[in-house]
Write a protein that binds this DNA or RNA. Structure first.
Length: 493
RNA sequence: GUCCCCGUCGUCUAGCGGUCUAGGAUCCCGGUCUUUCAAGCCGGAGGCGGGGGUUCGAAUCCCCCCGGGGACACCA
């Protein structure tokens, strides 16, 4: 069957079965290794699994693959958990592979007993020496048919064996069905007898992964493309253990602007960093959801709950995606503009410390201030040191250039008249008529009154709407700042 | 080197043989609104990697080429 057809067919049928059978049947997982921060590629994989599980009323399993003692770190595992929590991707079950070593050993023993695996005493160095440094060369089977004598000698040398899985030559020509891509077949997989248990007693990825996916009842493995060539190996292990493999589907990779696998050197690529920069979690979820999945109707902005409803596998594409920070910023801006005052305050809170505790005491004022400034920013990080925001809490320093501008007519006169008229008109609606009146009295255009007022209040030529600034500052503060400006002008004369 | 995957505007994508002089979004450019900047609104530029087939008809199906990416560990 052709790929396109088959894709449509499998997706539709999958859903059919799913709802007919038992809607709680789908079990998917996300299985990160805690060797670094959660990067956006991993987050996208987690998200798709989560969306799918939630959509189908299935189970989302989180499994920390920390069998590599040398590279795994507790803090990374915690960081990943925290990042997922932040994104709102809640899991139903959580496992650590490092706590399941007995299980792997048990199955490894079984494969050994059944002659489907064998001890290998070669050190990595010896194997490398025999094969050369070239990649793509397979283990030569040196230890496959070791005699008792040889075994004993190695043991006496104090060698600890690794366990290798027997891969018959004829199995290397193989194929499997990918529920996103259709049939994937391999002319000849370049895989010799591969290690399933390391000499330190921990399992390798391909082995632990199979044992766990089976033990945890995973029905569908949805992971990134870089696992395609692992899949046949894993299927062999399922077969050797007499298990039915789950269905496999492979998402594309997420690339940097240079079309290479996204990595640290591409800038902010971990969700921790995005969080630190002030992206909203639901904006990140929204953006990531549309990387490789196209929402029906072409709508761009979605709440997480809406994504769950709209998500479907048949709109997932398998070509690689470039991570576009600009688009993420746009999505973030859209979500920022949707927040309520209270939500905005809570989200912005970590980015307001620099204003000082005193400034933050009046939550109502902070919210008003944020509502003024946020439309002009893309990330909450842009609030840090933001002059438009600062000026709402601290009087501006009027520098020489500003005073110079303010000293030019009709500015001084305009400020004085505004000050006189302030007591009766400084509401949000009242400013405009007031300015127009003063402009009329002076015989100048309104902008020649607006501009000096802006300079006196903020020390800057641009910023949010003046009336709103006045409203946030309050009449007293507005008067104080105008008076201050006039004083400085007086002094400079 | 071997194997695998992928290929529509710069980027994310719609597209399942005619409705495509290829639609949307972002970015960029221009205009508009406004007391300023941004946002908003309106408009514009920009693409089916190439070549062969199949067909009355191909972005859509097939083949070759080219390009990009990935995998080949006692990492996951």
């Amino acid at each position: 069957m052709e790929v396109g057809l088959w894709r449509g067919w499998v997706c539709r049928n999958l859903y059919g079965q799913m709802s007919e059978r038992n809607s709680g049947k789908l079990r998917v997982r996300f299985a990160p290794s805690p060797t670094g921060f959660l990067h956006v590629g991993g987050a996208r994989t987690a998200l798709f699994n989560w969306l799918w599980a939630r959509r189908e009323g299935g189970t989302f399993v989180l499994r920390i693959e920390d069998t590599d003692l040398a590279r795994s770190e507790r803090r990374f595992a915690e960081g990943i958990l925290e990042a997922l929590r932040w994104l709102g991707l809640d899991w139903d079950e959580l496992y650590y592979q490092s706590e399941r070593l007995e299980i792997y050993r048990r199955y490894a023993q079984r494969l050994l007993d059944e002659g489907k695996a064998y001890h290998c005493f070669c050190t990595p160095e010896e194997v490398a020496a025999r094969l050369g440094r070239n990649r793509g060369l397979e283990y030569d089977g040196h230890c496959r048919g070791l005699s008792e004598e040889e075994r004993r000698r190695y043991l006496e040398e104090g060698r600890k064996p690794a366990l290798r899985f027997v891969v018959p030559e004829e199995k290397k020509h193989t194929s499997f069905r990918d529920f996103l891509r259709g049939e994937i077949s391999f002319e000849r997989l370049t895989t010799g007898d591969f290690v399933i248990m390391k000499s330190d007693g921990t399992p390798t990825y391909n082995f632990a992964c199979v044992i766990d996916d089976h033990e945890m009842g995973i029905t569908h493995v949805l992971r990134a493309e870089d696992h395609i060539s692992n899949t046949p190996k894993q299927i062999w292990i399922y077969e050797a253990l007499g298990w039915e493999p789950p269905e496999f589907g492979h998402l594309s990779m997420i690339l940097g602007p240079d079309r290479r696998k996204l990595s640290k050197r591409h800038g902010a690529t971990s969700v921790e960093e995005l969080r630190a920069q002030g992206f909203l979690p639901k904006a990140v979820v929204n953006y990531l959801a549309t990387l490789g999945w196209s929402p029906p109707g072409g709508r761009e902005i979605w709440e997480p709950e809406e994504l769950i409803q709209a998500f479907s596998l048949d709109r997932v594409v398998t070509s690689p995606q470039v991570f576009d920070l600009e688009k993420l910023k746009w999505v973030n801006r859209k979500h920022l503009s949707r927040l309520s005052g209270k939500e905005l305050f809570d989200a912005a809170r970590p980015f307001l410390e620099w204003l000082g505790g005193e400034a933050l005491r009046d939550e109502g004022k902070v919210i008003k201030a944020l509502e003024l400034v946020v439309p002009s920013i893309s990330t909450l990080g842009e609030l840090v040191g933001n002059p438009d925001l600062e000026v709402l809490f601290r009087p501006p320093e009027l520098d020489g250039a500003v005073l110079e501008e303010l000293s030019r007519p009709p500015a001084p006169e305009a400020l004085e008249r505004l000050l006189e008229a302030l007591p009766d008109a400084i509401s949000r609606e009242g400013l405009k008529p007031l300015v127009h009146r003063v402009a009329g009295e002076l015989g100048v255009r309104p902008r020649e009154v607006f501009h000096p007022l802006r300079l006196a209040l903020t020390g800057r030529g641009k910023g949010p709407e003046l009336a709103s600034i006045c409203e946030v500052l309050g009449r007293e503060e507005v008067a104080r700042r105008i008076r201050k400006a006039l004083e400085l002008l007086e002094k400079g004369r």
